[in-house]
């Protein structure tokens, strides 16, 4: 019975999402497209950055590899196989990246992941110009016959990404990953094969991120290295996951939701306030402030903080009842 009740709300939410295309304008459908897409990539990041506690700031590497694999292969092998190829190639590329970066810990790991993503950005722009056309950009074949269908593609992607992370996170693997996050040395001494589990998390994460990249490219219809390999992509994924709550199941979706709507609101409301001079810059300034405030006052993210707060209150109520009983 309890198990069943836990399913009710996610299903309700899903039904709500399924209703949106019938009520919202295409612009808001596209906003939701990006919410779902980046929430999905956020779920993927969460496996490595949230549960395993390995702060990857270079997920754009997998995103970009997926995007370019799809863009380059779709005209030759078709849409479906190209998505599959994007998944395979981003997963395969994650193996050496993981082997290199996981030898490092803490900020060194984070820096190494940035360096890898930046390296790929420079290579895709210059050295591999023959393949990628460099910054001149590639035209990308669509994935679905009608652009309005991308909403469903992204929703499906997010549901799959959620299901995969939820399954992993609640399994033995998930507990091992969390043990690694809490104390890697201790985890190792209790015979958890930490390098193996970290790599496993990264491979799954890269696979999902690569598929996300291919959907992004198909929806946009054109890509250049800066669109997919840039630090902006990596950072966005990290921000939304941490804003929502790193290492929580729903955190990335909540974070993606808030970031996308905040950015929309800032752009359309604040940016039109003329007395501010360069109001667009002011909007970004507020965005930075939001990040600062969340880290300072809600370091566990929104979902994490609310969960803690509820737990605290429940314990408090419980304590009161117990005292009253005595």
């Amino acid at each position: 019975m309890k198990r069943l009740r836990a399913w009710i709300l996610p299903i309700l939410v899903l039904i709500l999402f399924a209703l949106i295309p019938f009520t919202a304008s295409f612009y808001y459908q596209q906003i939701f497209f990006y919410i779902f897409l980046f929430a999905g990539v956020g779920f993927a990041w969460n496996l490595v950055g949230g549960y395993a506690g390995q702060l990857s700031l270079g997920h754009a590497a997998f995103f970009g590899i997926g995007a370019y694999a799809y863009a380059l292969l779709a005209p030759h092998i078709g849409t479906g196989p190209a998505v599959l190829a994007a998944a395979v190639l981003s997963t395969v590329s994650a193996a050496p990246i993981g082997l290199i970066c996981f030898r490092l810990r803490g900020p060194y790991f984070a820096l190494a992941t940035i360096a890898v993503a930046q390296l790929l950005l420079v290579l895709a722009t210059n050295q591999f110009k023959g393949l990628t056309q460099g910054a001149a950009g590639l035209l990308v074949q669509g994935m679905v016959p009608d652009p309005s269908l991308y909403y469903w593609v992204a929703l499906g992607f997010m549901v799959v990404a959620f299901a995969v992370t939820a399954l992993l996170a609640t399994s033995k693997t998930g507990y091992y990953l969390m043990a690694i996050r809490e104390d890697e040395d201790t985890a190792q001494t209790v015979t958890i094969n930490t390098p193996l589990y970290k790599l496993y998390a990264l491979l799954v994460s890269a696979l999902l991120t690569g598929v996300g990249g291919s959907i992004f490219a198909a929806n946009l219809g054109t890509i250049q290295p800066n669109d997919v390999f840039s630090a902006a992509i990596s950072n966005q994924v990290v921000f939304l996951a941490i804003l929502g709550g790193a290492g929580t199941l729903y955190g990335p979706l909540v974070g993606a939701f808030i970031l996308e709507f905040a950015s929309d609101w800032l752009k359309n409301s604040v940016a039109n306030v003329t007395w501010l001079g360069d109001a667009n810059a002011f909007a970004f300034f507020l965005y930075g402030l939001l990040i600062v405030l969340v880290v300072m006052y809600m370091p566990a993210g929104i979902v994490g903080t609310v969960a803690k707060w509820r737990k605290g209150r429940a314990a408090h109520v419980h304590a009161q009842r117990t005292t009253a009983g005595v």
Binding site: G288, I291, M296, P299
Partner: peptide, 20 residues
Amino acid sequence: MNHILLTAGIGLMLTNLAQM
């Protein structure tokens, strides 16, 4: 992780303050 996020936020604020 929080150092990185906080200072990245501060960086964003400084960049856009400069632009304003």
